[in-house]
């Protein structure tokens, strides 16, 4: 499984763009929003948690179709499915690799983007915390969507239609956590809910993804 993880990471980095593309996209979203809503600091700071979370969702979405598509095309997914490690494990590792290449960079870069949007210091802490807790769920759920659409020629648009509604709870609790943290309200409920959703997603969703891949490889 470690070997598979390293292989996926290496592929993502060497295939060009995989690593930084999500980050660049995130930057563009953050740059474009002030053009749309005007440059006043107060407004930006108020909507910053939402922008950053929605930007994270979209950046995550961009690279989803590559989780399984390339392996499906060249047949290595068939090999992985017949390999001694369970397919559920393969799916989980793929999601982890996806998170390491898109989710983690976003988490690490988020404070910088927060500064761009006039987010205050304490709010930045909550932003990083909420993204760190929430983005793994995005990757695992995205892997499920990718598994559903892996056999399709043009799955990209369909993939977003399938996956984005699944992101709603994570987005709500993630953005709420930042908002509450920024205004000094109690944060325990959204924090626990966000962590709970992520933990449950990691535990359960790979089974559904593996089932979908088995159907697609039939």
């Amino acid at each position: 499984m470690i070997a598979l993880l390293l292989r996926d990471l290496r592929l993502a980095i060497r295939a060009g763009g995989g690593f930084g593309l999500g980050l660049a996209f995130f930057l563009i979203v953050v740059t474009l929003v002030p053009f749309g809503v005007g440059p006043e600091g107060g407004v930006l700071a108020r909507i910053a948690p939402g922008i950053l979370w929605v930007g994270a969702l979209l950046a995550c979405l961009l690279s989803l179709d590559r989780i399984f598509a390339l392996d499906f095309e060249d047949g290595s997914l068939d090999l992985l499915a017949t390999a001694p490690i369970p397919l559920e494990g393969v799916v989980t590792i793929k999601a982890v690799a996806h998170w390491l290449t898109t989710g983690l960079p976003l988490v690490l870069a988020a404070p910088a983007f927060g500064v761009l949007l006039h987010l205050e210091g304490s709010a930045n802490f909550w932003l990083v915390l909420s993204l760190a807790l929430g983005t793994p769920a995005l990757s695992v759920l995205g892997a499920f969507g990718a598994a559903l659409t892996v056999g399709l020629k043009r799955g990209g648009l369909l993939l977003s239609l399938l996956v984005l509604p699944l992101y709603v709870p994570t987005l709500i609790f993630g953005a709420e956590l930042v908002r509450r943290g920024a205004s000094g309200m109690e944060t325990q409920v959204p924090l626990l809910m966000l962590a709970g959703i992520t933990a449950a997603c990691i535990a359960v969703v790979p089974f559904a993804s593996a089932a979908a891949i088995r159907v697609n490889l039939r």
Partner: peptide
Amino acid sequence: DLTGVLCLVGSVFAVLSRYAVNF
């Protein structure tokens, strides 16, 4: 098969969203 799996997962998340938006 695939829509069946989607329906199962979607049901869980639809209910989850219902209570999340309440919050």
